[in-house]
């Protein structure tokens, strides 16, 4: 009992230790500073509460941004997994599409922003399109690879026991590809967050990206830094949630690998 408590304390110490040290170093370096560009942590913390904890920014900027991120990522996952399983399971479709997919994947989504603005206007549809255009690829390509690499013995098993259609999709194809799919989703999340910010930097009037650019242009440097801090925190929370989900979804995968390692 005591040892578990101590172990928990140690792991919290490890997780929080380095950030605490960095903030301390930051505080020391900016002590009594008058620099416009590098405010002290206290200044940034003050700007943070004032800017991001105000109800109108929460409802007007933070939540819309998070919603765009969430919907964009969700769309990417659904499109990537559905299209990926179809392409991965159909050899001729794969042969037909794979070179083209590599081509589209290589295009940086940022350069598509003006094109998408022309096509879709400047509202949320455009922003979602920017997010999906970049974050769908890792899910799609990983799903294709995961479905393609399914164990032939398990495929024969499913065929011989006539496990087909929706049942095979749910209990065989998806779980078999899930380790690869989850690796794709991890990448999708980080790309999605970046593109959420970028999509809001162009022709926008709300959102985290918009606010950060606005503060930058107004020389509200502490506020700008606080926005960057918020993005980092969102990233940490997203990663933590992902890890929780991943551990649940892939518990069999981690478990069997642990057994295989002995």
């Amino acid at each position: 009992m005591r040892t578990t408590a101590r172990r928990a304390l140690v792991s919290v110490g490890f997780a929080a230790g380095l950030p605490a040290l960095l903030v301390a170093a930051w505080a020391l370096a900016t002590q009594g500073t008058t620099s416009l560009y590098f405010p002290s942590p206290a200044r940034v913390a003050q700007a943070f509460t004032r800017t991001w904890l105000a109800p109108e920014t929460i409802t007007g900027d933070v939540l819309p941004s998070l919603a765009r991120f969430g919907i964009g990522v969700l769309l990417s996952i659904v499109i990537g997994v559905v299209a990926g399983t179809a392409i991965g399971a159909t050899p001729w479709l794969r042969a037909l599409l794979e070179p083209m997919l590599e081509f589209f994947r290589a295009i940086p989504p940022v350069v598509l922003v003006p094109v998408l603005m022309l096509l879709l206007g400047i509202d949320d549809t455009m922003k979602l399109a920017v997010i999906v255009s970049g974050s769908v690829w890792p899910v799609l390509l990983n799903t294709i690879e995961g479905v393609r690499a399914m164990d032939p013995v398990l495929t024969d098993t499913s065929r011989s026991y006539r496990v087909r259609g929706a049942l095979a999709y749910r209990y065989f194809v998806l779980p078999a590809a899930s380790p690869q799919i989850m690796a794709g989703i991890r990448l999708c999340l980080s790309i999605g967050l970046i593109l959420m910010v970028i999509s809001e930097m162009f022709a926008s009037s709300s959102g985290l990206g918009y606010q950060i650019v606005y503060f930058q242009r107004q020389y509200m440097v502490a506020e700008m830094w606080s926005g960057i801090l918020l993005l980092g925190l969102v990233g940490v929370v997203v990663a933590a949630v992902f890890q929780l989900v991943e551990r649940r979804v892939l518990h069999w995968y981690h478990g069997s690998r642990e057994v295989a390692r002995g």
């Binding site: 164990d151 013995v153 398990l154 024969d156 098993t157 779980p175 899930s178 069997s256």
Partner: peptide, 13 residues
């Protein structure tokens, strides 16, 4: 059917 490769013919999930 029962396959030789039991480790690969059961669904690990």
């Amino acid at each position: 059917l029962v396959f030789q490769e039991y480790g690969r013919s059961l669904y690990p999930w």
